[in-house]
Structures are given as C-alpha cells and as structure tokens.
Computed example of a mutant assay.
Amino acid sequence: MDAHDVKDGSRSAITLVVLAVVFLAAVAWGWSRVTSPFPEKVEAAPCTDTLVSSGEDVAPPQVMVTVLNAGGANGLAGTTMDKLVGFGFGQGKIGNAPKDTGLVSAQVWSDDPGDPAAILLASYLGKGVDIVDQPSGYPGVTIVVGKKFKGVKKGKATVTAQKDSYVCAPPLSTDPDLASSAGRRGPG
C-alpha cells in the first residue's frame, strides 16, 4: 500500500463522516419539525378601528353593529340585526343584554356619545333613541332593544363627523356577492 492509497482512503473516510453528520443533523431537524405543535389559529379581528377625520361622512357599510335583546320577544335581536344588515351595516354579535338593563325601547351604547357611527345607527332606530356613554365590550357599536322597540326604519344615508373619531369598520368581504350587497338598501 503506498502513501497515495492511504491519502485517498483518509479522504473517503472523512467524506463519509461529514455526510453522516449532515444526515444526522437533517434527521434531527426534520424530527423537531414533525413533532412540534401546529401554530395556533389566529382569529381575525371582527372589525378595524378606522380614523374618520372631522368633516368626513360615515355610511352604514363602515359601521359594525352588535344587537342585544333586553327582554323583548325571542329573536328580536336577530330580526333587528337582519334589517340593519339589509341597510348595509356590518354584522357583529347578537345576544342578550345583561339582566339588570331594564330597557323597554332602544338605546345605543358607545364609549363616545359623539361617535358618528353611533349617531348614524341611532337614526335607524326611531325618534328619541338615547346614545348612552356605556362601553359594551362587543365589537362595533352596540344597540340594546327591549319590549317596546318598534323596529328598524330607514335612517340617514350618512352622518358627518364633527370631530376626529375612530369607527370600528367591518372587514372587507372577499365574496363579490357580499361586497356588492353591502351598499344596497334593503326593505325597512
């Protein structure tokens, strides 16, 4: 055996060792990927706080609505939501109001009573609807309807913001049928 054969044999052995190390590293990395938990599903925000500058108009498709039933007939919140969505408002949550609400007609709950979205929404609930400074914890503007609520009526097409405000706008739809119906006026 000459020196040349020993040198070639050493190179082959080193090459095999390096390939074995690379193979083991790839197996370890692949195993860690296979056994790692899947990423958590991230829920999309129900609406996005959008700045409306003073003097800009707010229209129903820019407003997310939550409807709570405060002792009215079963399904009153759902019926009210359906009519508001027919006028172009974004659909938020539907549920029951807290037991101590004691409301007999309708109120709009907002953490800013001067909010143009709250004022616009109140115009669809009839005359004399109060906008109450009460955050609800639900997405968008919350309305609470009770036993004597007379139903949704056609309101203002837009309301002009009197000051810079944030409106919780619904996400844009990727469904062309839904997007085209957002601005359509339904029966009231």
Rank of each mutant, 00 (worst) to 15 (best):
G78Q: 12
T79A: 11
T80W: 05
T80D: 06
D82M: 10
L84S: 03
V85T: 12
G86S: 09
G86L: 07
F87D: 05
G88I: 05
F89A: 01
Q91D: 08
G92Q: 02
K93R: 15
I94F: 01
G95N: 08
K99M: 10
D100Y: 11
D100R: 15
T101G: 07
T101Q: 13
G102R: 13
L103Y: 03
L103M: 11
V104Y: 12
Q107D: 14
W109L: 15
S110T: 07
D111M: 09
D115Y: 00
D115M: 03
D115K: 01
P116T: 07
A118I: 04
A118L: 06
I119Q: 02
L121F: 06
L125I: 06
L125C: 05
K127S: 13
K127H: 10
K127E: 12
G128F: 01
G128H: 03
G128W: 00
I131Q: 02
V132I: 15
V132F: 10
Q134S: 10
S136Q: 06
S136P: 08
G137K: 15
Y138P: 02
Y138I: 03
P139S: 06
V141W: 00
I143N: 00
V145Y: 01
V145N: 01
V145Q: 01
G146S: 12
G146L: 08
G146E: 04
K147G: 07
K148Y: 10
F149N: 00
F149M: 08
K153Y: 11
G155Q: 05
G155C: 07
K156L: 14
K156A: 15
T158W: 15
A161G: 05
Q162F: 05
K163R: 07
D164H: 08
Y166K: 15
A169F: 09
A169H: 11
P171W: 02
S173A: 13
D177I: 13
S180C: 11
S181A: 14
